[in-house]
Design a protein around this nucleic acid. Sequence first.
DNA 1: ACACTCGCCGGAAACGTTTACAAGACAGGG
DNA 2: CCCTGTCTTGTAAACGTTTCCGGCGAGTGT
Lengths: 348, 348
Amino acid sequence: MTRKRLQKSADAPATVRTVAALAGVSIASASRVLNGIGGSAETVQRVREAAARVGYVPNAIARSLQARRTGLLALAVADIGNPVYVEMMRAIEEVAKRADYQLLVHATGADPEGETALLEGLARRYVDGMILSPLRIGDGHLTALRRSPVPVTVVGQLPDEAPFDNVRADSHTGVLLAVEHLATTGRKRIAFVNGAPDTLPGAARMTAYRAALAGVGLPYDEELIEIGDFQYAQGRAAAARLLARTRPDAIFCANDLIAAGALHELLAGGLRVPQDVALVGMDDTALAEMSFPQISSVSLGAAERGRLAANLLLSRLEDPQLAPRRETVAPTLTVRASSEARQEERHR
Amino acid sequence: MTRKRLQKSADAPATVRTVAALAGVSIASASRVLNGIGGSAETVQRVREAAARVGYVPNAIARSLQARRTGLLALAVADIGNPVYVEMMRAIEEVAKRADYQLLVHATGADPEGETALLEGLARRYVDGMILSPLRIGDGHLTALRRSPVPVTVVGQLPDEAPFDNVRADSHTGVLLAVEHLATTGRKRIAFVNGAPDTLPGAARMTAYRAALAGVGLPYDEELIEIGDFQYAQGRAAAARLLARTRPDAIFCANDLIAAGALHELLAGGLRVPQDVALVGMDDTALAEMSFPQISSVSLGAAERGRLAANLLLSRLEDPQLAPRRETVAPTLTVRASSEARQEERHR
DNA sequence: ACACTCGCCGGAAACGTTTACAAGACAGGG
DNA sequence: CCCTGTCTTGTAAACGTTTCCGGCGAGTGT
């Protein structure tokens, strides 16, 4: 049966059989040598040489089919332009690399079809597991998650009964931290520029804002609310509308991109930050540090969420029978120049 | 030979044979129905039903092995935290999607080992092609590129004789644009904050800066040069060193992250931008627009480079025999508030 | 009634790898 | 001299698909 064409069309990529034939051994021996298990000195030498001669590169797809694993993990995020996801990605990558997985990232662009398509595409075993951080989550997602042949860990709010590994931020406490901070430093008219209210974070932050106001004994005022999406441009436009309408003494923004936009509007309007208007963002990304003045921001622990998600996923890969787990990470507030107490003038 | 176990261990994922057995047809028929080609109404119905019952999800790995294509492209960039790569990625993704490829991104972290490892790993046919945008390029890269079984398009400088599809920016002209703009608006002491000089862009921008100075008839002054890397923090530190040492009337930065850092230092030092010191960045990313004042920046056409690279890759996938091609995209300067002409006071 | 086409079907090969298994070679110990 | 154990090798099955090909039944035209 070795009378198969030993020479293929000449430039077809070399396979293990090419190598084996050239070295004059069986494909089993060739494979063993190439994987560094067994083989007499003689065969090892011959196979190595043959492999080098034809420039043999193993076909990872075939290997994965046989091994039933690829060694790849995927991260799907809505918007990789948002630095908070970059942070999360870095954390995941570190954990993954330590367990000898490579991480691939896909930006779904917040479009739910893209996300389910990804679930139905990539997750068909191109990757061994997946971390998904959706902005919205619909029935489509849930059924896609359920059918997924590989484990998926979800970062973000998930219906309580959904049986998936899940890491969530505590937006509620995070918003509370920001509002309390602003209130205790004497601000009374605390505006809120939210992202899209039909997203999970958007909805959560909105209700948390109302609750927080009540908590510190401030009245809720429709006038002080504006809505954009979670991007810079829309956030900035929303801040502009807000400032054209009313004059808050503080603005809390649903993420740092929005906060950067608001800062821009404030400064362009000749207002001093924080003396005239204080500013607090959310996610505590590099952007908050890069702005001038630096923006106070509530961290929802993106890196920590990434780490946790990665670990959940890895442990599930080891033992698929595990019961679904759910972790929540605590927010922290970093106060920077944009919301320093009023009385102290800034100096440097 | 159908006496193979029809029931596997019960919870093993369903394969096409499971479906076929359940529907009482051959695997060939099952496969055909599942791919929507042929089949009598009767069988179509039975197979569909069986597939739904067992929650059949095709194994993409197996499919790819047979089809010898995966429908995936990869983009490897050094630092996904740099918005310029985000822009490039978006452009690539759009082109890829239109050709029915999905794009996966991997951040190599500028570490050359990671990059060659990626080439040798991913490119072993997990993806159909790859776009690589390395900061440095060594012999390791070149040989890895040569052995790669899938086509790789390189974005960035490449040795002239290297036979790979290649898209490059024109750093030289870009720097010239910036320096000429600053010079013609009356700036005489134009400082330069570079990134790592041992990277390809770093080296190119350095020599271009010297040439540009000569071009506009300004003297080259060591004092006006500082070096960081291409990140914000190092760039900012470099700008701080520069300002502690001397007093330029303009700063040109090798990318927008550095420029953002320089802006921070300038403002913190109480200097007015652009009245006291003008500022120009490079890459023209979202960051330049988000800063206050907005930063003038030279675009090296990241999106366009991405588009071109994607198209080169796609056309090579169609016809592997194509001769290697090389494209260069022209830079453009966007003047914003940070470098407006001196005499006009800014207003808004 | 016969030859022909046409659509559907199943068997089997193929994609490129790893690995279980058995067989052969050889050495050492009794 | 034989038995046993170790080491190496090759054959073949397996991973889960898709697809080539030959067969078969039904319909059509003469």
